[in-house]
């Protein structure tokens, strides 16, 4: 009952301060950027400016070869070498190819590049092109087979792939950032002292803060997920997972706050913790670089779990196991924070 009273008071106070509106504004900005500024997939394909200076029938053969190739939709035909070079000046991502007949009568393929490409990339480009050409040779047989160990996994759009990062760093860790601000506001006003001389327990006070952060986190995560993922997210498990992640984040925030008596001092520690937690995004975006130490950062399984819940067939066992671990961690950290607050809250 006292927890509920304190929680409702904190909720009322949170809507009368600007922190919650900052959270909502951040969520809205993220939605707007994702929907209206960035494309659904951040393409890595580049335009290829092409010039074929050959006589018939060589011209038609090469043109057919190009038009049937994998990069056909990226080819832009131009009518002079100078035009290719000018186009490359305008588009620094693009490459060019100039096909002409050499003095010896051979068909020559001249790649026109920007100059910043590494020798490895240039060689790769060259070999790929040669490889493509060989497939047109009579009696060609493909001797290469590919085996994927991880099993065939559906591919999320880039927009959906980014979504878990926002959900973890903003919604799950709302409490990590903001709970300190609320507690130091109570300390400044002296209202913590007034609360301490009532029958309400310190645990009621801290649980109310946990609850308030949970509401804020769930609100922003739901808002962003609905806007970005629409029907492709598994909302039930996602909300359960986000609740566990949010409680974990706020518990860390409470523990950090218990060591300080002013917001400025606490912020330096909070930034260090956030910086460390954000490291996991490297491995999330580059699975080839995922050393154990990064996978042990709690945000890594959080990111992977949320991504799972955006797949059509999520691995719910992994998700719920992670959520369970986060809840256990949250409970442990909360107990530590409670111990610290009991010792230091009013002194």
């Amino acid at each position: 009952m006292k927890f509920l009273t304190t929680f409702l008071k904190d909720l009322k106070l949170s809507f009368r301060t600007f922190y919650i509106y900052i959270e909502i504004a951040l969520a809205v900005i993220f939605i707007l950027v994702m929907l209206f500024v960035l494309p659904e997939n951040f393409t890595t394909e580049h335009d290829i400016y092409t010039l074929i200076e050959l006589e018939e029938p060589a011209y038609s053969s090469v043109r057919t070869l190009f038009d049937e190739g994998a990069e056909a939709d990226r080819l832009i035909y131009l009518d002079s070498r100078e035009a290719i070079e000018n186009a490359l000046l305008e588009d620094r991502e693009a490459a060019g190819i100039h096909v002409f007949q050499s003095a010896e009568g051979r068909i020559t393929y001249d790649f026109v590049l920007q100059g910043y490409e590494s020798p490895k990339l240039v060689e790769l480009l060259k070999q790929t092109f040669i490889g493509d050409l060989t497939t047109y040779m009579p009696d060609y047989e493909d001797q290469v087979s590919i085996t994927t160990l991880g099993g065939a996994r559906e591919k999320l759009s880039d927009r959906l792939t980014v979504l878990p990062v926002f959900l973890v760093l903003n919604s799950a860790f709302t409490g990590l950032f903001i709970v300190a601000a609320y507690i130091f506001m109570d300390k400044d006003e002296g209202t913590i002292k007034a609360l301490t001389v009532t029958p309400a327990k310190i645990s009621d006070y801290l649980l109310a803060k946990l609850g308030m952060m949970l509401v804020m986190g769930m609100l922003t995560s739901l808002l962003v997920t609905v806007a970005i993922a629409r029907g492709s997210a598994h909302y039930g498990p996602l909300m359960i997972f986000m609740a566990a992640a949010n409680l974990f984040g706020t518990a860390i925030g409470l523990l950090l706050t218990s060591f300080y008596d002013d917001l400025m001092k606490a912020m330096s520690s909070i930034f260090v913790v956030v910086f460390v937690l954000a490291f996991s995004t490297i491995s999330y975006f580059m699975p080839s670089f995922s050393p154990l130490i990064i996978r042990m950062i709690p945000t890594y399984p959080m990111l992977v779990s949320i991504r799972e819940l955006l797949y059509q067939q999520p691995n719910l066992t992994y998700v719920y196991a992670t959520a369970g671990g986060l809840l256990a961690g949250a409970a442990l950290i909360f107990m530590l924070a409670l111990y610290r607050f009991k010792k230091t809250l009013t002194v």
């Binding site: 008071k9 106070l13 002296g190 209202t191």
Partner: peptide, 10 residues
């Protein structure tokens, strides 16, 4: 208390 300590936002 000697120093007033009430919730300013309430």
């Amino acid at each position: 208390f000697e120093q007033s300590n009430v919730y300013g936002k309430l």
